[in-house]
Design a protein around this nucleic acid. Structure first.
Lengths: 119, 119
DNA sequence: TTGACATATCGCGAGCTCACGATACGTTGA
DNA sequence: TCAACGTATCGTGAGCTCGCGATATGTCAA
C-alpha cells in the first residue's frame, strides 16, 4: 500500500483529542441532534423558560418536554431551578451559544449574500 | 436575570427557522454525532484522504469507513473523486470548519485558561 | 387535609443506528 | 482474459432512541 499518491503514506495526523473525547463529543452532539432539543436550546439562549412554556412552544406534551430537558441537562447543557410550582431551565454551557450560531448559520437562516460563495 | 414573571405568558419567540429546518439541522447534526465520523471530518479538514487511509487511522474495516463516508456525503458534508483504484474524499461543506472548531474547543481540546470560567 | 396544578419518572413497543460478513463493483496490471 | 486490489452495497441482528400513557412527586391554596 505504498504511497499511492501525494496524500498517501502513513501520515496519520495525530488526533486532536483522545478516542474517549471523540466519544464524549459525539454523545453530546447526539443530544443536540434533535429538532425539539435544537428549538429548546434556541429559545433558552434568549431567556429562561418553564417546562410548560417550552412544551407549548414546541407543541409537545409536558412530559415529553421534560424528558428532552433532562437529556440536555444530563450532558451539562442546561441547569434548572424550581420556583413554586414551576421549574425554570436555562443555558448552563457557554459554548452552546457559538455552537448554535454555527448551526443556525448553516441550517436555520436563509443564506446571506455576504457570506456565501466566497471561494 | 429577570424574575420569573416576565418570562411567562404566551411569548413564544418566533422560531429562527421553520420546523422543517430544525429537522434538517438535526439530521445533519446526527450524522456528525459519531466518534468515527467526527474523527474523519477532523482529518479531512487537513487534506484529502482515500477510504483505506481513513479506515486505517480510525482502526476500522474499510467497508465500515465507506459507510460512514457515504453518510457524510449524503448530507453534503463531503465529496469524492476516484483516482485509479482509490477514492479520495474531501470536505464539501465550508461551514464544517467553524462547526468543528466549536466542537473541538468544547470537547476535544484541553480547556484553555483564556476562555473559561467567565461566569 | 384535600384537590388542582406543574413537573418528573417509568414501562412499553415501533422504528432506527450500528458493525459485521458476504458479496458486488470498478480499476489496474499481467 | 484473469486475478488482485480498493471500494461500495446489502442483509442481518443487537442495542438504542423516541413518544406515549400511566403514575409518582412536589407545590400551593382553600
Amino acid at each position: 500500500m505504498g504511497a499511492s499518491t501525494k496524500t498517501a503514506k502513513s501520515k496519520v495526523l495525530k488526533p486532536l483529542g483522545s478516542v474517549q473525547s471523540f466519544s464524549e463529543a459525539a454523545e453530546c452532539l447526539k443530544i443536540l441532534a434533535h429538532p425539539v432539543r435544537l428549538r429548546i436550546v434556541q429559545l433558552l439562549l434568549h431567556g429562561r423558560f418553564a417546562v410548560g412554556e417550552l412544551a407549548q412552544d414546541c407543541e409537545i406534551p409536558d412530559n415529553v418536554a421534560s424528558e428532552h430537558l433532562r437529556l440536555l441537562q444530563r450532558c451539562g447543557f442546561l441547569s434548572n431551578q424550581r420556583e413554586g410550582r414551576h421549574v425554570f431551565y436555562e443555558i448552563a454551557e457557554p459554548h452552546l451559544k457559538s455552537l448554535m450560531a454555527c448551526v443556525e448559520s448553516r441550517f436555520l437562516l436563509p443564506p446571506s449574500k455576504t457570506s456565501q460563495n466566497k471561494s
